[in-house]
Design a protein around this nucleic acid. Structure first.
Length: 540
DNA sequence: TCTTCCACGTG
DNA sequence: GCACGTGGAAG
């Protein structure tokens, strides 16, 4: 039943999505006409009804709590995990078909925010989008049976504000609003994607949108993190007395640090405010989605929506797409640009996402690289790879190692990257990691910390490395984004040339591709975009 | 605003 | 016992 509904729904959405997407993809270029764009995957493909895949966000209620308060995610130079973690339950996949799951985090709008008077306010124009990176789930590629077997967790994904991050973490600007997106890509025969007929779907849960910060602004969010994140248990205590604080201060009783006081006040305030706020939660949207309803977005009012921009959609948006052929196909070859590590390492994929604010979404595969994943996000450890893919969970499903490709999504803004700089991903910066191999990237080797990449972040930087690039498909453009980017980059600025350095394993490079991004798609905009206006999350 | 260090917790 | 994830405080 649900499925039916879902399907139906999805279909609807999908088409929209496509439309939307296309634009993105194209965005840069003249966008072909959307109409042209094939709708969803027209391609025929064997298996896949990627569009029939259902994705349920795990712990949605928790996400909603955060969303209602205006979710904030800490970003640090070293990389910080997201909390709540992005975990999903998948159903409707072809058990034998291999899929690659990846997440990208795109700007939700083009504003910079500030937290004043206990609420988020627009504080100017957004900084240029950072090089978009994609975080590929370490188990990728894996068969549908594998993905459906248990929750798929992206908890190891890390966010950073270091534009030169060598670890493959997702790079964001502080005080900006972002929207994580899940992309399910059907792996091709080479365990890569990007080839013709590559089909993929993008799912967006609006309740996972957040504002990146270097320190929490809204006390309510801090409290939610402390109350729900096991690693923050040390800060739990009665509200009144934060044990930890006490300790720090050496007092038994709650110290009243300015913060604590402030927090308390705020929290009270928030509560009231919250109640006052609107009334409805956007929850509906989510639910709708789940229900399979189309989104109706009712939400305009949704408080949350307000907080975050726009997306109105129901909780999720989804796009499905199939590449058309020509276009792009990525090759996955596996090359690991940076990584040298040969075999040992597994490959990771780096992707770049597009910066668009919205929805651009589509990933475009860039090229792949291999790498190993070290940590498996999901199940525990997996590495998948080693040669093959991750082995995590079951290996059965796993496919062999995949190549990691990079995708670039479109950037919202044309610029992307670090200001045009050629980004050198990893290598350059490795400074810290001295250990890391300097120059060339070795993937596996030691790198200091493990990059997310392990996880699978990719950047795109294909060209430079010689990675396979995707060829751009002309028409595809409309549809398939992926292609475009890659080439562009290479051609154009080529932002990233990789320099000699190599990043640690993980990431290989990233070229940043800018995807462009802005979305124009109706749907999308519809979703997200909107709100810029207010944006206020005020939580309170 | 951001970075670094800290104590404490999980796993 | 160790590595690492946390938010707070101090800088």
């Amino acid at each position: 039943m649900l499925q039916e509904k879902v399907s139906a729904v999805t279909d609807g959405r999908m088409s929209r999505v496509q439309d939307a997407i296309q634009p993105d993809l194209l965005s840069q270029e003249p966008r072909p006409d959307l109409s042209t764009a094939p709708t969803v995957p027209s391609a025929s493909e064997p298996n896949q009804n990627i569009e029939n895949i259902k994705v349920v966000l795990h712990e949605r209620e928790l996400w909603k709590k955060f969303h209602e308060a205006g979710t904030e995610m800490i970003i640090t130079k070293a990389g910080r995990r997201m909390f709540p973690s992005y975990k999903v339950k998948l159903t409707g996949m072809n058990p034998k078909t291999k899929y690659i799951l990846l997440i990208d985090v795109v700007p939700a709008d083009d504003h910079r925010y500030k937290f004043c008077d206990n609420k988020w306010m627009v504080a100017g124009k957004a900084e240029p989008a950072m090089p978009g990176r994609l975080y590929v789930h370490p188990d990728s590629p894996a068969a549908g049976a594998h993905w459906m077997r248990q929750l798929v967790s992206f908890q190891k994904l890390k966010l950073t504000n270091n534009h030169l991050d060598p670890f493959g973490h997702i790079i964001l600007n502080s005080m900006h609003k972002y929207q994580p997106r899940l992309h399910i890509v059907k792996a091709d025969e080479n365990n890569a994607f990007g080839s013709k007929n590559t089909a993929y779907c993008t799912h967006v849960f609006h309740e996972t949108a957040f504002i990146s910060v270097t320190s929490y602004q809204n006390h309510k969010i801090t409290q939610l993190k402390i109350e729900n994140n096991p690693f923050a248990k040390g800060f739990r205590g009665s509200e009144e007395a934060d044990p930890r604080i006490s300790r720090l201060q050496g007092k038994e009783y709650p110290p009243i640090s300015k913060n604590s006081v402030r927090q308390r006040l705020i929290s009270s305030h928030n509560h009231l405010a919250g109640k006052l706020m609107t009334g409805h939660p956007q929850v509906l949207s989510s639910y709708q989605y789940e229900a399979g309803l189309p989104l109706a977005n009712s939400d305009s009012q949704d408080p949350i929506s307000n907080h975050f921009p726009p997306s109105r959609d129901p909780g999720l948006l989804y796009h499905c797409f199939k590449h058309r052929d020509n276009s792009r196909h990525l090759e996955l070859g596996c090359k690991r640009p940076f990584l040298e590590t040969p075999s040992a390492v597994s490959e990771e994929h780096y992707f770049r996402s597009a910066p668009s604010y919205e929805p651009s979404l589509l990933p475009r595969p860039y090229h792949n690289e291999a790498f190993s994943a070290r940590e498996a996000c999901m199940y525990g450890g997996m590495e998948a790879e080693s040669g093959s893919g991750a082995g995590d969970v079951d290996d059965v499903n796993h496919s062999p190692p995949m190549n990691r490709s990079m995708w670039a999504t479109m950037p919202p803004y044309p610029r992307y990257t670090v200001d045009g700089v050629a980004y050198q991903p990893f290598a350059a910066h490795f400074t810290n990691t001295a250990a890391v191999t300097p120059v060339v990237p070795h993937p596996a080797s030691t790198m200091a910390p493990r990059p997310q990449s392990d996880l699978g972040v990719f950047n795109s930087a294909p060209a430079q490395r010689g990675l396979p690039v995707i060829s751009p498909p002309p028409s595809a453009s409309s549809c398939a984004p992926a292609t475009l980017a890659p080439r562009d980059r290479s051609d154009h600025a080529g932002p990233y040339h990789k320099k000699p350095g190599s990043p640690p394993r993980p990431h290989r490079d990233f070229s940043a591709y800018p995807s462009q991004g802005a979305i124009r798609e109706p749907s999308f905009q519809y979703q997200m975009g909107l709100n810029s206006t207010g944006t206020h999350w005020n939580d309170s």
